[in-house]
Simulated assay, not measured.
Amino acid sequence: MIVRVIKFFAKGLLAFLMLLLLYFVAALIGSAIPVNSDRQAGGDITIYLRTNGAHTDFIFPVENDVMDWEQMIDSTYILSKKGNYDYISFGWGDLEFYRNTPEWSDLTFPTAMQAVFLPTPSAMHVEFESPPRFDQPTVPIKVTEEEYRTLVDYVSWSFQKDFSGNVRPVPDLHYNQNDAFFYAKRSLNSFYTCNTWVNNGLKEAGLPACLWTPFDEGIFYKYH
């Protein structure tokens, strides 16, 4: 009986390891296949991509001829209540992960497993910045007005809205004086991560991206 139990768990562990291996192989292949690689570089608008080593954010101008983000997310949502910032960053991810993991050192196994395997709510993390924070790896990208407009539509669509079309803030959740969290659409899983969200936005805008990636390395490799 004990031998059968051991064999059962050994087979289960082997199957799990095989699936994990296939996942990483698929991620490697998907990250290596470029999308929009023939795009002509250049444009009048500068945006940024920033990573903390695991999670990627978009950084956009707060206001230009295409979009004034303060019409959608003003300073009343942040603790400092200050306005007149030059840039605004957007990150998408699992709400409970954001809530329980302000620093990567706070990450626990249950939080990670819940984020990846359970259909939990997602959130947008928004931070006002002047100038953009360069304390983490950050790359500038010159985009055209049309490309930026597509990115604006993509990010705006990702927010959950109320019946009046307003964004829905997550109460009492902040990392600093100039940020806020908002309820977002979709749910994070192993095939649709925070980096997949950024990569899909780049693809929609016709910018260099990966065929599919759950990680940040594939995205940033396209801009080195």
Rank of each mutant, 00 (worst) to 15 (best):
residue 3 V to P: 00
residue 3 V to N: 12
residue 7 K to S: 10
residue 8 F to G: 02
residue 8 F to R: 12
residue 9 F to M: 06
residue 15 A to E: 03
residue 17 L to C: 15
residue 21 L to M: 14
residue 21 L to T: 14
residue 22 L to E: 04
residue 22 L to R: 00
residue 25 V to N: 09
residue 31 S to M: 11
residue 32 A to D: 08
residue 33 I to P: 12
residue 36 N to F: 11
residue 38 D to K: 15
residue 39 R to H: 08
residue 41 A to T: 03
residue 44 D to Y: 00
residue 46 T to M: 12
residue 47 I to V: 15
residue 47 I to L: 13
residue 47 I to H: 11
residue 48 Y to T: 06
residue 52 N to G: 04
residue 55 H to R: 05
residue 57 D to M: 05
residue 58 F to T: 03
residue 59 I to K: 07
residue 60 F to Q: 06
residue 61 P to V: 08
residue 63 E to D: 10
residue 66 V to P: 00
residue 67 M to T: 13
residue 67 M to G: 01
residue 67 M to A: 05
residue 68 D to I: 05
residue 71 Q to S: 06
residue 72 M to N: 08
residue 73 I to G: 07
residue 76 T to D: 12
residue 77 Y to G: 07
residue 78 I to L: 04
residue 78 I to A: 05
residue 79 L to E: 09
residue 84 N to L: 01
residue 87 Y to S: 15
residue 89 S to F: 07
residue 91 G to W: 14
residue 93 G to R: 08
residue 94 D to H: 01
residue 96 E to R: 14
residue 97 F to C: 07
residue 97 F to A: 05
residue 97 F to S: 07
residue 101 T to Y: 07
residue 101 T to W: 07
residue 105 S to G: 15
residue 107 L to T: 11
residue 110 P to N: 02
residue 114 Q to I: 09
residue 115 A to R: 03
residue 115 A to D: 06
residue 115 A to T: 07
residue 116 V to E: 01
residue 117 F to E: 07
residue 118 L to Q: 13
residue 119 P to G: 15
residue 119 P to V: 09
residue 120 T to M: 12
residue 121 P to F: 06
residue 122 S to Q: 09
residue 123 A to E: 02
residue 124 M to E: 02
residue 124 M to A: 06
residue 126 V to H: 06
residue 129 E to I: 07
residue 130 S to T: 15
residue 133 R to E: 11
residue 134 F to R: 11
residue 135 D to H: 05
residue 135 D to A: 10
residue 135 D to K: 13
residue 136 Q to N: 11
residue 137 P to C: 10
residue 138 T to V: 02
residue 138 T to S: 08
residue 139 V to C: 10
residue 139 V to Q: 15
residue 140 P to C: 04
residue 141 I to A: 13
residue 142 K to E: 14
residue 143 V to N: 03
residue 143 V to L: 11
residue 144 T to D: 08
residue 147 E to N: 13
residue 149 R to S: 15
residue 149 R to I: 01
residue 150 T to G: 02
residue 153 D to L: 12
residue 155 V to R: 03
residue 157 W to M: 06
residue 158 S to M: 04
residue 159 F to T: 07
residue 164 S to E: 12
residue 164 S to R: 11
residue 166 N to Y: 15
residue 166 N to R: 15
residue 167 V to A: 04
residue 168 R to Q: 09
residue 170 V to H: 11
residue 173 L to K: 03
residue 175 Y to I: 15
residue 176 N to I: 05
residue 177 Q to D: 13
residue 177 Q to S: 14
residue 180 A to C: 06
residue 182 F to D: 01
residue 184 A to Y: 08
residue 184 A to L: 05
residue 184 A to K: 04
residue 185 K to N: 12
residue 186 R to Q: 14
residue 190 S to E: 01
residue 190 S to R: 08
residue 190 S to K: 07
residue 191 F to W: 02
residue 192 Y to E: 01
residue 192 Y to F: 14
residue 193 T to P: 07
residue 194 C to F: 02
residue 195 N to M: 05
residue 196 T to Q: 09
residue 196 T to K: 03
residue 197 W to M: 12
residue 198 V to N: 04
residue 198 V to T: 14
residue 199 N to A: 12
residue 201 G to Y: 12
residue 201 G to S: 10
residue 204 E to S: 10
residue 205 A to L: 13
residue 206 G to L: 10
residue 206 G to S: 14
residue 206 G to C: 13
residue 206 G to M: 12
residue 207 L to I: 05
residue 208 P to N: 07
residue 209 A to F: 04
residue 210 C to R: 01
residue 211 L to E: 02
residue 212 W to P: 03
residue 215 F to P: 00
residue 217 E to G: 09
residue 220 F to P: 00
residue 220 F to D: 00
residue 221 Y to T: 09
residue 223 Y to L: 10
